[in-house]
Design a protein around this nucleic acid. Structure first.
Lengths: 204, 204
DNA sequence: CAAGACTAGAGAGTGGCGCTATCCAATGTC
DNA sequence: GACATTGGATAGCGCCACTCTCTAGTCTTG
């Protein structure tokens, strides 16, 4: 298939596909001449994955490239791929997070063990700091309930990882880590809406 | 306090404070002359809230303005404020979501009732569509587990809403809806990391 | 074989966004 | 009276995700 068909089937302008090729998100097609290249079904899948990461996944092109690099690296272990995906994701980044204490305390109470430099830990500390700055510091009790819910989900996510090929597992981990986030957030808001309707019924 | 003190205490450049004033995120100070205005402690709080929404909250200036408008509107009911906050948040937006069916099915199984045009419902449908497009369609079982975890959290969120003044409740709802999202995502990633370490122990 | 449609590749341009810099006249402070 | 600061307005900047344009080459159709 040529670039125009690839673009049409993915619902993306040709110019944008070229841009992804240039940016290294989409691997080159097989050159069949100086001005022709052939693309396969896997290119189409990859293109759809890119669009999912950039759109609903909320990743920037640079972060998507890092995530896809983790998918592509052949020797990656599943645990390492998860780490790579986490590192590539947004969320406070490597900024300073003054006190990690409340964040660490949650982990201790749950018995979780994570890397000392885990980006998620920094992200949590940063998010807590933002809440405090906004004058809405969360209680430990609230955090523990959130952590318990998160534990169920995280357990589920990891249990579902396919054990067949490593490459498949890595792809699964990366895709699910990124693309289930909007699902979770949407479900939380729906649950809030339902609970709010039940608690404040006067104003529908 | 003058603008320079306000800016200094919030850790924000004066030019940026002026920008927020222009954009209507921060209310004008009380003019004490043609080139002087006085700002109060509530301006400082508001400024910190703005920074929390724009930074860790991940909102654009336009969305933050809409969220803050909900906080400011005096007659807003709590349920309506929640809706306003949800509508102002990112997440697929008003784009077409081809089939809402799988999303609606989750709600049915849980007995949730939400507005037919709930933005969160569209967001969920869009997120599911993205997963399908990426070749990682989630099973109903997985969705139900996510929904159950979300139910606990949403219930908790709503139960904590202060019943004192409506304005306070609205502010609480908006802030928590937005700023607890990064907390939840970070906790999920930490749970994944812990579960992944336990399941794939070979490669630490 | 000629005309026209398409292609790879590369560079420049675009529009939106969140600031940031500059300027002005007026008002403070020392 | 010298100098800094302010409110207000306008313009500019840097980044990002495209999008346009151009060139030289290639395929297809008649």
């Amino acid at each position: 298939m040529q670039i125009s068909e690839l673009a049409r089937r993915a619902g993306v302008p040709v110019a944008t596909v070229k841009y992804y090729l240039r940016e290294g998100l989409l691997p080159q097609g097989e050159l069949t001449g100086a001005t022709r290249a052939r693309y396969r079904e896997e290119h189409l899948e990859r293109l759809r994955l890119i669009r999912a990461l950039l759109g609903p996944g909320g990743l920037s092109v640079a972060r998507a490239r890092a995530v896809l690099a983790a998918v592509d690296t052949p020797g990656t272990s599943v645990h390492a791929a998860l780490g790579a995906a986490h590192r590539a994701l947004p969320g406070v980044g490597a900024e300073e997070a003054a006190d990690l204490e409340q964040a660490r305390a949650v982990l201790r109470r749950r018995g979780w063990r994570v890397a000392a430099d885990s980006p998620a830990l920094l992200a949590l500390a940063g998010a807590l700091e933002a809440l405090r700055a906004a004058g809405a510091a969360p209680t430990d009790e609230l955090l523990d309930r959130y952590a318990e819910a998160a534990a169920r989900i995280g357990e589920q996510d990891v249990a579902e990882v396919p054990t067949g090929s490593v490459a498949e597992a890595v792809r699964f981990v990366v895709v699910n880590t990124v693309l289930l986030e909007p699902v979770l957030l949407a479900l939380r808001r729906l649950a809030q809406e339902d609970a709010s309707r039940r608690r404040f019924p006067t104003d529908c």
